[in-house]
């Protein structure tokens, strides 16, 4: 299976997620980040960093030195990172009442 998915991966179109996120409305909490990396060193040691791939809004990005940063402002509160971060290194909370994504259509 991995062989087929390797070849298939090549036909994935490049998508600039930021263009897509323009369609979303957010009420950003300027005082509190609801997502946090628990231990930055754990991310440096994490070889695959699958969060960069699986986050549906691309909120996880690598920095110089192998750390991972979360653009919590883009989060749509799906929960994938909480469940799938291999070393469970994400502190995941819901945004405070009224904050976060606000779907216009849903």
């Amino acid at each position: 299976m991995s062989e087929t998915s390797d070849t298939q991966q090549n036909d994935l179109p490049k998508v600039f997620i930021d263009d897509i996120l323009m369609s979303l409305k957010y009420f950003t909490d300027e005082h509190e980040a609801h997502l946090k990396i628990i231990d930055t060193q754990v991310c440096i040691n994490c070889k695959d960093k699958p969060c960069i791939q699986f986050c549906p809004v691309g909120a996880y990005r690598t920095q110089d030195g192998g750390t991972v940063q979360i653009a919590f402002q883009s989060c749509i509160e799906c929960g994938t990172c909480r469940v799938m971060c291999p070393p469970a290194n994400v502190s995941w909370k819901l945004p405070r009442g009224g904050f976060g994504v606000a779907y216009k259509f849903g």
């Binding site: 998915s5 994935l12 996120l21 369609s23 549906p56 809004v57 994938t80």
Partner: peptide
């Protein structure tokens, strides 16, 4: 894989793309 690239790949499928051609993105979500 990136889920939004998987979705775009589906939307680019030759049998799907003509159905949504010229459409404007109203909202994305997950």
């Amino acid at each position: 894989i990136k889920p939004y690239e998987l979705l775009q790949r589906y939307m680019n499928h030759p049998m799907i793309a003509p159905l949504i051609a010229g459409g404007r993105l109203m909202e994305y979500g997950a």
